[in-house]
Amino acid sequence: MLTTTDLAKYPFTIEASEYVKSLRIGIDELASGSYDSILDRAEERIRESEKDALVSPDWQDTNVEILSYPTAIMFVSQLMNDRITRRYALSESKRAYEHLRNENPEKMLEIAKNTFGWKTTSQERRDGARFECSIHFTDYIRNAKNIRDSRWKLVNRLLDHGVVSATWEEAARLLEEEIQHKVYSRIRPPSKTFPEPLMERIKNLRQEVDTGKYVSFTGMPKVVVSEAMPPCVKALNQMLSSKKHLSHMGRFTLTTFLLNVGVNRDDLVKMFREATDFSERLTRYQVEHIGGSKGVKTRYLPPKCDTLKTHGLCVNPDNLCKEIRHPLTYYRRRVFRRGGDVGER
Protein backbone atom coordinates (compact mmCIF):
# COMPACT_ATOMS: atom_id res chain seq x y z
CA MET A 1 0.00 0.00 0.00
CA LEU A 2 1.26 3.45 -0.89
CA THR A 3 0.98 6.09 1.85
CA THR A 4 0.31 9.77 1.15
CA THR A 5 4.03 10.36 1.59
CA ASP A 6 4.58 7.83 -1.19
CA LEU A 7 2.05 9.66 -3.35
CA ALA A 8 4.03 12.86 -2.89
CA LYS A 9 7.19 11.04 -3.91
CA TYR A 10 5.48 9.39 -6.88
CA PRO A 11 2.65 11.68 -8.03
CA PHE A 12 2.51 9.98 -11.46
CA THR A 13 1.19 6.69 -10.03
CA ILE A 14 -2.32 5.41 -10.57
CA GLU A 15 -2.84 5.63 -6.82
CA ALA A 16 -1.85 9.31 -6.77
CA SER A 17 -4.17 10.18 -9.60
CA GLU A 18 -7.04 8.38 -7.89
CA TYR A 19 -6.29 10.28 -4.71
CA VAL A 20 -6.33 13.59 -6.58
CA LYS A 21 -9.64 12.70 -8.21
CA SER A 22 -11.15 11.84 -4.82
CA LEU A 23 -10.45 15.37 -3.56
CA ARG A 24 -12.76 16.80 -6.25
CA ILE A 25 -11.08 20.14 -6.67
CA GLY A 26 -12.45 21.89 -9.77
CA ILE A 27 -10.49 24.22 -12.02
CA ASP A 28 -12.42 27.29 -10.81
CA GLU A 29 -11.68 26.44 -7.23
CA LEU A 30 -8.03 26.05 -8.08
CA ALA A 31 -8.07 29.57 -9.52
CA SER A 32 -9.97 31.04 -6.57
CA GLY A 33 -6.94 32.08 -4.57
CA SER A 34 -7.28 29.53 -1.78
CA TYR A 35 -4.95 27.08 -3.51
CA ASP A 36 -2.13 29.44 -4.43
CA SER A 37 0.45 27.27 -2.67
CA ILE A 38 -0.37 24.49 -5.15
CA LEU A 39 -0.10 26.84 -8.10
CA ASP A 40 3.19 28.21 -6.77
CA ARG A 41 4.69 24.76 -6.41
CA ALA A 42 3.43 23.77 -9.88
CA GLU A 43 5.21 26.77 -11.35
CA GLU A 44 8.26 25.97 -9.31
CA ARG A 45 8.34 22.42 -10.69
CA ILE A 46 8.52 23.85 -14.21
CA ARG A 47 11.12 26.48 -13.29
CA GLU A 48 13.30 23.87 -11.61
CA SER A 49 13.03 21.73 -14.69
CA GLU A 50 14.15 24.58 -16.93
CA LYS A 51 16.96 25.58 -14.60
CA ASP A 52 18.37 22.31 -13.30
CA ALA A 53 16.74 19.58 -15.41
CA LEU A 54 15.56 18.18 -12.09
CA VAL A 55 12.44 18.82 -10.04
CA SER A 56 13.60 18.98 -6.44
CA PRO A 57 12.79 15.80 -4.52
CA ASP A 58 12.07 17.62 -1.23
CA TRP A 59 8.79 19.18 -0.19
CA GLN A 60 7.06 21.15 2.55
CA ASP A 61 3.44 20.14 2.41
CA THR A 62 2.48 16.64 1.27
CA ASN A 63 -0.88 17.55 -0.25
CA VAL A 64 0.58 20.53 -2.07
CA GLU A 65 3.30 18.29 -3.47
CA ILE A 66 0.79 15.74 -4.75
CA LEU A 67 -1.63 18.26 -6.24
CA SER A 68 1.05 20.46 -7.78
CA TYR A 69 2.05 17.65 -10.14
CA PRO A 70 -1.18 17.40 -12.19
CA THR A 71 -1.35 21.21 -12.06
CA ALA A 72 2.15 21.49 -13.51
CA ILE A 73 1.13 19.04 -16.25
CA MET A 74 -1.79 21.39 -17.11
CA PHE A 75 0.56 24.36 -17.22
CA VAL A 76 3.10 22.63 -19.45
CA SER A 77 0.27 21.55 -21.77
CA GLN A 78 -0.75 25.20 -22.12
CA LEU A 79 2.80 26.24 -22.98
CA MET A 80 2.67 24.04 -26.09
CA ASN A 81 6.40 23.80 -26.53
CA ASP A 82 7.84 20.38 -27.22
CA ARG A 83 11.27 21.24 -25.88
CA ILE A 84 9.82 22.33 -22.52
CA THR A 85 7.61 19.25 -22.45
CA ARG A 86 10.56 16.91 -23.02
CA ARG A 87 12.67 18.63 -20.43
CA TYR A 88 9.87 18.59 -17.91
CA ALA A 89 9.26 14.87 -18.42
CA LEU A 90 12.97 14.25 -17.93
CA SER A 91 13.11 16.39 -14.79
CA GLU A 92 10.14 14.68 -13.17
CA SER A 93 11.60 11.26 -13.94
CA LYS A 94 14.92 12.23 -12.40
CA ARG A 95 13.14 13.44 -9.29
CA ALA A 96 11.36 10.10 -9.03
CA TYR A 97 14.64 8.24 -9.50
CA GLU A 98 16.12 10.08 -6.52
CA HIS A 99 13.37 8.57 -4.40
CA LEU A 100 13.22 5.18 -6.08
CA ARG A 101 16.90 4.35 -5.73
CA ASN A 102 16.49 4.34 -1.96
CA GLU A 103 13.07 2.79 -1.98
CA ASN A 104 11.96 -0.36 -0.28
CA PRO A 105 11.92 -3.08 -2.98
CA GLU A 106 8.35 -4.11 -2.23
CA LYS A 107 7.18 -0.58 -2.94
CA MET A 108 9.16 -0.36 -6.11
CA LEU A 109 7.57 -3.59 -7.30
CA GLU A 110 4.14 -2.26 -6.44
CA ILE A 111 4.68 0.86 -8.55
CA ALA A 112 6.20 -1.12 -11.42
CA LYS A 113 3.27 -3.50 -11.50
CA ASN A 114 0.30 -1.24 -10.79
CA THR A 115 1.24 1.84 -12.72
CA PHE A 116 3.34 0.37 -15.51
CA GLY A 117 2.07 -3.19 -15.80
CA TRP A 118 5.51 -4.75 -15.42
CA LYS A 119 5.75 -8.49 -15.11
CA THR A 120 8.43 -8.60 -12.49
CA THR A 121 9.34 -10.50 -9.36
CA SER A 122 11.98 -10.26 -6.69
CA GLN A 123 14.71 -12.80 -7.06
CA GLU A 124 16.00 -15.11 -4.45
CA ARG A 125 19.54 -14.01 -3.90
CA ARG A 126 22.06 -16.68 -4.44
CA ASP A 127 25.41 -16.46 -2.73
CA GLY A 128 27.59 -13.92 -4.41
CA ALA A 129 24.99 -13.03 -7.02
CA ARG A 130 24.46 -9.32 -7.36
CA PHE A 131 20.98 -9.55 -8.83
CA GLU A 132 17.86 -8.77 -6.94
CA CYS A 133 14.94 -8.83 -9.32
CA SER A 134 13.77 -10.39 -12.57
CA ILE A 135 12.21 -8.20 -15.24
CA HIS A 136 10.35 -9.53 -18.26
CA PHE A 137 12.41 -8.84 -21.37
CA THR A 138 9.66 -6.74 -23.00
CA ASP A 139 9.54 -4.39 -20.01
CA TYR A 140 13.32 -4.38 -20.00
CA ILE A 141 13.92 -3.42 -23.64
CA ARG A 142 11.11 -0.88 -23.74
CA ASN A 143 13.09 1.14 -21.22
CA ALA A 144 16.70 0.07 -21.61
CA LYS A 145 16.76 0.78 -25.37
CA ASN A 146 17.11 4.48 -24.60
CA ILE A 147 20.03 4.12 -22.21
CA ARG A 148 23.38 4.33 -23.88
CA ASP A 149 25.93 2.39 -21.88
CA SER A 150 26.64 -1.06 -23.35
CA ARG A 151 25.91 -2.64 -19.99
CA TRP A 152 22.23 -1.96 -20.66
CA LYS A 153 22.11 -3.62 -24.05
CA LEU A 154 20.03 -6.79 -23.91
CA VAL A 155 22.80 -8.81 -25.53
CA ASN A 156 25.01 -8.08 -22.50
CA ARG A 157 22.42 -9.10 -19.92
CA LEU A 158 21.66 -12.43 -18.34
CA LEU A 159 18.52 -13.25 -20.29
CA ASP A 160 17.06 -16.54 -19.19
CA HIS A 161 13.61 -17.92 -19.96
CA GLY A 162 12.20 -14.52 -20.74
CA VAL A 163 13.50 -12.58 -17.78
CA VAL A 164 16.43 -10.25 -17.32
CA SER A 165 18.21 -10.15 -13.98
CA ALA A 166 18.77 -6.71 -12.51
CA THR A 167 19.65 -4.99 -9.26
CA TRP A 168 17.07 -2.83 -7.51
CA GLU A 169 19.05 0.23 -8.45
CA GLU A 170 18.90 -0.81 -12.11
CA ALA A 171 15.17 -1.38 -11.80
CA ALA A 172 14.87 2.17 -10.46
CA ARG A 173 16.80 3.47 -13.46
CA LEU A 174 14.50 1.58 -15.85
CA LEU A 175 11.48 2.97 -14.05
CA GLU A 176 12.92 6.44 -14.55
CA GLU A 177 12.68 5.87 -18.32
CA GLU A 178 9.14 4.57 -17.93
CA ILE A 179 8.14 7.63 -15.89
CA GLN A 180 9.70 10.02 -18.36
CA HIS A 181 7.64 8.47 -21.12
CA LYS A 182 4.48 8.55 -19.06
CA VAL A 183 4.87 12.21 -18.12
CA TYR A 184 5.66 13.12 -21.70
CA SER A 185 2.63 11.33 -23.07
CA ARG A 186 0.31 12.95 -20.53
CA ILE A 187 1.08 16.39 -21.88
CA ARG A 188 -1.31 17.02 -24.78
CA PRO A 189 -2.40 20.23 -26.45
CA PRO A 190 -5.02 21.81 -24.16
CA SER A 191 -8.67 21.52 -25.13
CA LYS A 192 -9.85 24.61 -23.29
CA THR A 193 -8.57 27.80 -21.77
CA PHE A 194 -8.41 28.24 -18.02
CA PRO A 195 -9.81 30.94 -15.73
CA GLU A 196 -7.97 34.27 -15.93
CA PRO A 197 -5.73 33.93 -12.82
CA LEU A 198 -4.31 30.68 -14.20
CA MET A 199 -3.84 32.07 -17.70
CA GLU A 200 -1.97 34.99 -16.16
CA ARG A 201 0.46 32.62 -14.49
CA ILE A 202 0.91 30.67 -17.73
CA LYS A 203 1.55 33.88 -19.64
CA ASN A 204 4.30 34.85 -17.21
CA LEU A 205 5.82 31.39 -17.37
CA ARG A 206 5.82 31.45 -21.15
CA GLN A 207 7.60 34.79 -21.16
CA GLU A 208 10.29 33.46 -18.86
CA VAL A 209 10.97 30.33 -20.84
CA ASP A 210 10.53 31.81 -24.31
CA THR A 211 13.01 34.60 -23.73
CA GLY A 212 15.53 31.86 -23.23
CA LYS A 213 16.17 32.81 -19.64
CA TYR A 214 17.19 29.26 -18.84
CA VAL A 215 18.26 27.33 -21.92
CA SER A 216 19.30 28.30 -25.37
CA PHE A 217 18.13 26.23 -28.26
CA THR A 218 20.49 25.25 -31.00
CA GLY A 219 19.05 24.25 -34.33
CA MET A 220 20.62 23.35 -37.62
CA PRO A 221 23.14 25.64 -39.28
CA LYS A 222 21.92 27.62 -42.27
CA VAL A 223 24.38 26.19 -44.74
CA VAL A 224 25.32 22.57 -45.34
CA VAL A 225 28.72 21.81 -43.81
CA SER A 226 29.88 18.65 -45.50
CA GLU A 227 33.03 18.20 -43.41
CA ALA A 228 30.82 17.98 -40.29
CA MET A 229 29.02 14.87 -41.53
CA PRO A 230 29.49 11.67 -39.55
CA PRO A 231 31.63 8.81 -40.94
CA CYS A 232 28.61 6.66 -41.79
CA VAL A 233 27.06 9.35 -43.99
CA LYS A 234 30.40 10.18 -45.55
CA ALA A 235 30.83 6.50 -46.43
CA LEU A 236 27.36 6.30 -48.00
CA ASN A 237 28.03 9.46 -49.93
CA GLN A 238 31.33 8.07 -51.11
CA MET A 239 29.63 4.85 -52.22
CA LEU A 240 26.99 6.78 -54.11
CA SER A 241 29.45 8.98 -55.92
CA SER A 242 31.66 6.03 -56.85
CA LYS A 243 28.53 4.32 -58.21
CA LYS A 244 28.54 1.48 -55.71
CA HIS A 245 25.29 -0.20 -54.82
CA LEU A 246 23.44 1.19 -51.80
CA SER A 247 20.97 -0.98 -49.91
CA HIS A 248 17.48 0.33 -49.33
CA MET A 249 18.44 1.19 -45.75
CA GLY A 250 21.59 2.93 -47.00
CA ARG A 251 19.65 5.06 -49.48
CA PHE A 252 17.08 5.90 -46.85
CA THR A 253 19.77 6.96 -44.36
CA LEU A 254 21.60 9.13 -46.86
CA THR A 255 18.43 10.76 -48.18
CA THR A 256 16.92 11.52 -44.80
CA PHE A 257 20.20 12.82 -43.43
CA LEU A 258 20.82 15.17 -46.33
CA LEU A 259 17.24 16.45 -46.33
CA ASN A 260 17.44 17.12 -42.62
CA VAL A 261 20.65 19.12 -42.83
CA GLY A 262 19.11 21.26 -45.53
CA VAL A 263 20.17 19.84 -48.90
CA ASN A 264 17.35 20.72 -51.25
CA ARG A 265 15.30 18.10 -53.02
CA ASP A 266 16.30 18.99 -56.56
CA ASP A 267 19.99 18.71 -55.72
CA LEU A 268 19.37 15.37 -54.04
CA VAL A 269 17.44 13.98 -57.00
CA LYS A 270 20.26 15.12 -59.24
CA MET A 271 22.86 13.41 -57.05
CA PHE A 272 21.02 10.12 -57.17
CA ARG A 273 20.22 10.35 -60.84
CA GLU A 274 23.84 10.96 -61.80
CA ALA A 275 25.19 8.18 -59.65
CA THR A 276 22.72 5.43 -60.37
CA ASP A 277 20.63 4.10 -63.15
CA PHE A 278 17.42 5.04 -61.33
CA SER A 279 14.86 6.82 -63.33
CA GLU A 280 14.36 10.46 -62.41
CA ARG A 281 10.65 9.93 -61.82
CA LEU A 282 11.20 7.12 -59.32
CA THR A 283 14.05 8.91 -57.57
CA ARG A 284 12.02 12.09 -57.29
CA TYR A 285 9.09 10.15 -55.91
CA GLN A 286 11.27 8.52 -53.26
CA VAL A 287 13.00 11.71 -52.25
CA GLU A 288 9.73 13.60 -51.98
CA HIS A 289 8.06 10.76 -50.13
CA ILE A 290 10.84 10.77 -47.55
CA GLY A 291 10.93 14.55 -47.42
CA GLY A 292 7.29 14.70 -46.50
CA SER A 293 5.39 16.10 -49.44
CA LYS A 294 4.20 13.02 -51.35
CA GLY A 295 1.66 10.66 -49.93
CA VAL A 296 2.56 10.96 -46.29
CA LYS A 297 2.82 13.95 -44.06
CA THR A 298 5.58 12.47 -41.96
CA ARG A 299 9.01 13.96 -42.44
CA TYR A 300 11.45 11.15 -41.79
CA LEU A 301 14.58 11.39 -39.67
CA PRO A 302 17.62 9.28 -40.41
CA PRO A 303 17.89 6.11 -38.27
CA LYS A 304 19.77 6.42 -34.98
CA CYS A 305 23.27 5.01 -34.54
CA ASP A 306 22.05 1.80 -32.98
CA THR A 307 19.85 1.00 -35.94
CA LEU A 308 22.68 1.75 -38.35
CA LYS A 309 24.81 -0.75 -36.42
CA THR A 310 22.15 -3.44 -36.72
CA HIS A 311 21.96 -3.02 -40.47
CA GLY A 312 25.73 -2.87 -40.88
CA LEU A 313 25.87 0.79 -41.91
CA CYS A 314 27.94 2.12 -38.99
CA VAL A 315 31.50 2.36 -40.36
CA ASN A 316 34.74 3.93 -39.08
CA PRO A 317 33.21 5.43 -35.92
CA ASP A 318 35.43 8.14 -34.46
CA ASN A 319 35.71 9.65 -30.97
CA LEU A 320 32.74 11.95 -31.33
CA CYS A 321 30.66 8.91 -32.33
CA LYS A 322 31.19 7.54 -28.84
CA GLU A 323 29.43 10.55 -27.36
CA ILE A 324 26.37 10.64 -29.56
CA ARG A 325 23.61 8.27 -30.57
CA HIS A 326 22.19 9.95 -33.64
CA PRO A 327 23.98 11.02 -36.83
CA LEU A 328 22.24 14.41 -36.78
CA THR A 329 23.57 15.09 -33.28
CA TYR A 330 27.06 14.33 -34.57
CA TYR A 331 26.58 16.87 -37.31
CA ARG A 332 25.18 19.55 -35.03
CA ARG A 333 27.98 19.11 -32.51
CA ARG A 334 30.71 19.19 -35.08
CA VAL A 335 29.29 22.31 -36.69
CA PHE A 336 28.96 24.21 -33.45
CA ARG A 337 32.33 23.11 -32.14
CA ARG A 338 33.82 24.35 -35.35
CA GLY A 339 32.78 27.86 -34.44
CA GLY A 340 29.73 30.03 -34.59
CA ASP A 341 30.26 31.37 -38.08
CA VAL A 342 27.48 29.40 -39.70
CA GLY A 343 24.50 30.87 -37.95
CA GLU A 344 21.19 29.23 -37.25
CA ARG A 345 18.33 28.27 -39.44
Binding site: I141, A144, K145, V155, D306, T307, K309, T310
Partner: peptide, 16 residues
Protein backbone atom coordinates in the same frame (compact mmCIF):
# COMPACT_ATOMS: atom_id res chain seq x y z
CA UNK B 1 13.19 -0.23 -32.03
CA UNK B 2 12.43 -2.89 -29.51
CA UNK B 3 12.45 -5.63 -32.14
CA UNK B 4 15.84 -4.32 -33.18
CA UNK B 5 17.18 -5.16 -29.71
CA UNK B 6 15.95 -8.71 -30.22
CA UNK B 7 17.63 -8.89 -33.64
CA UNK B 8 20.88 -7.61 -32.12
CA UNK B 9 20.62 -10.31 -29.47
CA UNK B 10 20.00 -13.08 -31.97
CA UNK B 11 22.90 -11.90 -34.15
CA UNK B 12 25.19 -11.18 -31.20
CA UNK B 13 25.61 -7.54 -32.25
CA UNK B 14 27.01 -5.24 -29.58
CA UNK B 15 28.36 -7.90 -27.20
CA UNK B 16 30.84 -6.31 -24.83
Amino acid sequence: DERKEIVDYVLGIGID
